[in-house]
Each structure stands twice: as C-alpha cells, then as structure tokens.
C-alpha cells in the first residue's frame, strides 16, 4: 500500500452486466509471471452453468480462474468479463464473482461463524447490527444456525469449508469459482459439500483433481502448459485426459518430469 495513496477517480456508474449470459470472453489472453509464461493464447468464451477445469499441477488452472475475478490481469490479449473490459470491471467483480479457496484457514478472517458471514454484508455496505441479523437469517436458511456462535477454529474441516462457501454466497454472486475446494476434506464431507454446490443457482467454475465431480457438468476445459489442450463435454474431455495420464504413467518413471 502506498503511504499516500492517490484518490482514485471512481466512476459512479456500474460497467458490469451481472445478467450477461456469456460471463467471460477470452481473446488471445496470455499471462506471464516474471520470465515464465503461465497462460498463452487463450481464446474461448464461458457461459455454461457448470464448467470444470482440469490439468496437471502447474498447467495454469489457478491462474486461469483467477482471471475471472480480477485477482490476476492478462498481460496479453483482451478479456471481457460480464460485458466489460477486465480492467474496468475489476472493482465490481467481488460483487458478482465469489471465490472459494482450497484452504479455509486462509479465507476465514473472523473468529466466529456469524462474524465471518456478516463480513461479506458489511463489505457491501450493511451496518453492524443489520449484517449480524442478516447473517443469522442466512445461516438459518442453510440449516446452520446452530453454528452461528461457534469459533471457526473448533469446526471440522468440512464445516469450515462450508462456512467459507456460505460467507461468499451471502454476497449473492452470479458466478462461483472454486479452486480445489474439496482437496483437504474426508469422503463424507466431499459428498456433502459437492451436493450443496450442485444445488446452487449460481453458475460455477471449479478446479478439481477428482474427475468424477465433473461427470454431470456442462463443459470441461483441460489445460496443459498454459494452453487449452481440449475443451468440450465431460464424456469426451475426461476420457481423453484419463487416457493421457495412463500413457504418461505407463512410460518409464521420470521423476524429473513430475
């Protein structure tokens, strides 16, 4: 943070169209990190309700989804989000795009569940009392009112992740992005959280290494080395991805390539 930040000229009018059917349009988008090219020449548009993102570690998945809520900005090409150029849309994106991270410990800021949920509401401008009341109502709506006063530290991993998802949903985003949300959960928690996610009205873009999660999705995007390797219906893409992994693991063990 600059010691003496300049007053930014904020345009009062909104530039995003939250109801845009196609929420993201990539046109030759590239991202570099120092010398390394993380994403290259991405051209695609996203509008499906359930989109899965797969690929090996380091294939650019996390960077790809972070472009969708302004956590990363493209270094090359044009990105349009909710009908507006990414740079103009950025300040509004947290309203429209919820982001759930892999580790709930890095996402939950407040000690109790109710405060964590209420934070999103105060972010949107609600007063303290109002946001507390709304947070309780929201928890009740999702059948978790008994968790309201609980310290987040004392919840199970599954409950923590549920609280993180709810704390994002309470801001009523149109799009929900999940970066490996179930990696640290046990099998039962995975099933519950997955069921919850699939019941949501929000559009979803999710990264996961568990390919079974994507079988009923509308579309799966397979990234490899920062490029789209394959993009289409899950049956086709998942099968090709599984084959590719079989092939790679069948050849001699090359630790250096991991």
């Amino acid at each position: 943070m600059a010691l003496w930040p300049k007053k930014k000229n904020r345009k009062p009018e909104r530039v995003c169209d939250p109801d845009a059917d196609t929420f993201a349009v990539f046109d030759g988008v590239g991202v570099t990190l120092g010398q390394r090219t993380v994403l290259e020449d991405l051209t695609l548009s996203l509008k499906e309700a359930r989109i899965g993102v797969i690929g090996l570690n380091g294939s650019g998945k996390s960077t790809f989804v972070r472009l969708l809520n302004g956590l990363r900005t493209p270094d090359k090409g044009n990105l349009t989000l909710f009908g507006a150029p990414a740079a103009d849309a950025e300040p509004e994106l947290p309203r429209h795009v919820g982001f759930v991270f892999q580790n709930p410990d890095h996402q939950a800021i407040f000690p109790t569940v109710e405060e964590e949920i209420a934070f999103g509401l105060t972010q949107l401008g609600a007063g303290k009392e109002e946001s507390r009341k709304e947070a309780r109502a929201f928890l009740e709506l999702h059948g978790c009112l008994e968790l309201a006063e609980s310290p987040i530290a004392e919840l199970s991993e599954g409950q923590k992740q549920l609280v993180c998802i709810l704390s994002v949903l309470v801001m009523e985003p149109e799009l929900l992005i999940l970066d490996e949300p179930m990696t640290s959960l046990d099998a039962l928690a995975v099933r519950r959280i997955y069921g919850k996610l699939m019941s949501l009205p929000q559009k979803i873009v999710m990264i996961s290494h568990d390919l079974t999660h994507f079988e009923n999705f509308d579309r799966v995007i397979w990234l490899e080395g920062g490029r789209v390797r394959l993009d289409g219906p899950p049956q086709q893409v998942l099968a090709a991805y599984r084959n590719d992994i079989e092939e790679k693991s069948g050849t001699k063990m090359e630790l250096a390539a991991l």
Partner: peptide, 21 residues
C-alpha cells in the same frame, strides 16, 4: 506466503476498503 494467500482471499471479497463506495 500465508499473508499472500490471506490478502488474495480478502481481495476476492472486496478488499480492505469494502465495496460500498
């Protein structure tokens, strides 16, 4: 690294100044 992650999560929910401007 942790502070990076936390900052990212905070930014995703509208940052330290909030969205009510």
């Amino acid at each position: 690294r942790m502070s990076d992650n936390v900052a990212e999560a905070l930014k995703a929910r509208g940052g330290s100044a909030g969205l009510s401007r």
